[in-house]
């Protein structure tokens, strides 16, 4: 065991790069947003693969790079993103994956043509003290924000085998919604239209909310006396164009909320990009819970990706970084190559 504690340094912080944990609980009543990950499935997956941490870096479409001062084990998740190692070995991989960075190596996470949010979870990383019981950063109010230019200590006594995994989250399909607290303020024909016609994501989106564009969704009134807002609530201001409220939303608000996105389907929505089209589907609470349970289970029973899903890019990378990947995987590779 080396006496020196390994550290991980963000190479060039950007405003879309934050630290998130499961979110802040118990202070919504004081005006404090919950925050937490924009994609809870890929976040939990990263935490599960890295082990020994409850928080991860959340990476937006600006990407991120991390420099290893010492040996660091981490996991990368995020649909459409790529993870590239440089500065020692050189290789590019498609997440989800778990790997160990050696001293002096850099991990660069870059968005591809799809996907909005990626996660890097680091075994044993110390993000400093929690604020109101949480390490999450609120991008809107700055609560929980920390100096991202610091080198975060990552004491970890042992390292698991590096491995690639399959993404456990299903892509495509409609987005399940449940009635929101002002569902009754939208006439039935409007509620039907909400589920029957497509909506397009505009470029007005961030960790607070996503503005949609589509058929005009009219309520009997578009201002209410403010009430509490859960994650995934879809509020409709006077222009009839819905806004999906996300992790950094204010905890209360004064527009009627027609629906709440089922938690299982929130990542599918938030990983969409401006210009993408989505469709909503009314589902009931039991169906929403079943969907969530099924996905939560899939995150915890992962097995490393099988040989036939390796890309030629991966194989080229693996050869360059010989020794990083477990022997049995290499044997499988050889078998499959025959």
């Amino acid at each position: 065991m080396s006496a020196k504690t390994s550290r991980l340094k963000v190479v060039r912080p950007n405003h879309l790069l934050t630290v998130q944990d499961a979110g802040r609980q118990g202070a919504m009543r004081y005006g404090v947003s919950q925050s937490g990950p924009m994609d809870w499935v890929r976040f939990q997956l990263a935490i599960h693969l890295a082990t020994d941490t409850s928080a991860a870096f959340e990476i937006g479409v600006a990407g991120a790079a991390f420099f290893a001062e010492g040996r660091v084990q981490l996991a990368v998740t995020g649909p459409g993103f790529t993870a590239r190692i440089s500065g020692g070995r050189t290789a590019t991989f498609e997440p989800p994956l778990r790997l160990t960075l050696e001293e002096g190596e850099t991990l660069t996470v870059t968005p591809g043509s799809t996907g909005m949010w990626a996660y890097v979870a680091v075994k044993g990383i110390d993000f400093g003290p929690p604020v109101l019981g949480s390490l999450a950063t609120n991008a809107r109010t700055g609560l929980g924000a920390r100096d991202m230019g610091t080198a975060f200590p990552c004491p970890a006594p042992a390292f698991a085998e590096p491995a690639l995994f399959d993404d456990p989250y299903p892509t495509g399909g409609t987005i399940g919604v449940l009635p929101g607290p002002q569902h009754h303020m939208f006439p039935e024909t409007v509620r039907d239209r909400f589920a029957a016609e497509p909506f397009t994501l505009t470029d007005a989106l961030d960790r607070m909310g996503y503005r949609l564009e589509g058929p005009k969704i009219e309520a009997i009134r578009h201002d209410i006396i403010s009430d509490g807002i859960v994650e995934g609530a879809i509020q409709v201001p006077g222009n009839g164009q819905p806004i999906v409220l996300c992790a950094d939303r204010a905890p209360t608000g004064g527009y009627p909320k027609i629906a709440i996105v089922a938690s299982a389907d929130r990542p599918r929505l938030t990983q969409h990009r401006p210009g993408d089209t989505i469709r909503f589907e009314w589902i009931d609470e039991a169906a929403a819970r079943d969907r969530r349970r099924a996905i939560a289970e899939r995150v915890t029973v992962l097995t490393p990706r099988v040989r036939n899903s390796f890309t030629s890019e991966f194989l080229a990378g693996r050869n360059l970084i010989g020794g990083v990947w477990p022997k049995e995987t290499e044997a499988d590779d050889a078998l499959g190559d025959a």
Binding site: L178, P181, D227, G228, A233, K257, I260, A262, A288, R292
Partner: peptide
């Protein structure tokens, strides 16, 4: 009682202050 997703609900006592 108003719905607010699969893990929340609202007890509403009125629509005004």
């Amino acid at each position: 009682l108003r719905g607010s997703g699969e893990d929340a609900f609202v007890v509403e006592y009125g629509e005004e202050i």
